[in-house]
Write a protein that binds this DNA or RNA. Structure first.
Lengths: 187, 187
DNA sequence: TCCCTTTTTGGACAATTGTCTAATAGCCTC
DNA sequence: GAGGCTATTAGACAATTGTCCAAAAAGGGA
């Protein structure tokens, strides 16, 4: 849980708060293909990705559509399911072997009440999530597929290095065939 | 601020907490076309829409694209700008005359520290926002335009009654021309 | 190194969606 | 109820994007 520890230290956690916080998490190891959460089930845990890569996807007309890919040092969650405790509309599984630190929603709520800074951490996490998701939604409505690709190239080049194109295509709202066309045009 | 009062009562606010909370808001009247926030400026206030309708949009290649429309009894905010205090990527303006209760980010943060239930309200608001936005983003990637329209017809029929189609089209990620085609097919 | 699997690319064609434009329909005001 | 807005619909055509498929390229063990 080394990276999680660094994460919390970076936002000012220390001493007792840090210990209690880290104790509420437990480490889980994932093999490629293992599920973090399956569509239809209710997400009980929030995860922090220590290593590896998780794919969010649904099966649509028999084939999968990727809605997002999480990479290490970020939080993983089927947001809606975890937050509202309703069945997940998507599955999340490991694209590679990896490790995540998990905390249950119950422990999260408990910590938030016991440790004031933890509640503020959760607010910060929600604010970060809402910004990222809103921005992505905005782009899907306002930009063309090519502009979205260019933006990813500019702002998240590590995505293009780490994540297979077939998954990125779907996240960008196009088919792999079309992403190939876009890449061919722009370089 | 009648509706705002009812809103807070419904989530369990009363007595001193309710008074302090309502006092942190002030009422503002909007004429059709008035801005709630302009693209490029940083949003200083969160609003609760007492009456009227607000349109979120950007000008893209000389023409406007609507990303969302808020209706009464909901909160209004250029989320990313308000949350991260960065310039807004979209404008928000009144589509009709209306009234909103505003609270500054500073007062919001102050109240969150003074009134514990208010912090929990803010968490709830963020959770609600993240669910709604995530769901909408999910639909843009996974569903066809026709399926998104059908879903709106099923789940938010009041949108179709209240909001002009030209704006809904854009929210659904298509042109008005194409929305017209969709509507023609399905009924 | 070689073989096997997975990923990426791209041709040919089809379906979807956008652009431009005009006609129709609603609605408000005088 | 006539005139002037604005919203909605729809035809014709063009551009974009998807589907189906096969070939090429890239990895990953044995």
């Amino acid at each position: 849980m080394e990276k999680l520890k660094i994460y919390f230290k970076n936002i000012g956690f220390g001493g007792n708060d840090l210990d209690k916080t880290l104790n509420a998490f437990f480490l889980k190891t994932y093999k490629k293909g293992d599920f973090f959460i399956e569509e239809g089930k209710t997400s009980k845990h929030l995860g922090f990705l220590e290593s590896g890569m998780f794919q969010y996807y649904v099966i649509k007309d028999g084939e999968e559509r990727t809605t997002y890919v999480s990479i290490e040092n970020t939080f993983v969650s089927s947001v809606m399911s975890f937050v509202s405790q309703t069945p997940a509309r998507e599955s999340v599984r490991a694209l590679t072997d990896g490790q995540a630190c998990l905390i249950s929603r119950i422990d999260l709520k408990r910590l938030a009440n016991e440790i004031p800074p933890f509640k503020d951490f959760y607010i910060g996490l929600l604010e970060w999530a809402v910004c990222g998701i809103d921005s992505s939604r905005h782009d899907l409505i306002v930009l063309t597929a090519e502009q979205r690709y260019d933006k990813m190239l500019r702002e998240e080049p590590h995505f293009l290095q780490q994540i297979p194109l077939q998954y990125l295509a779907s996240m960008l709202g196009v088919t792999p065939r079309h992403l190939s066309r876009i890449r061919n045009n722009t370089r």
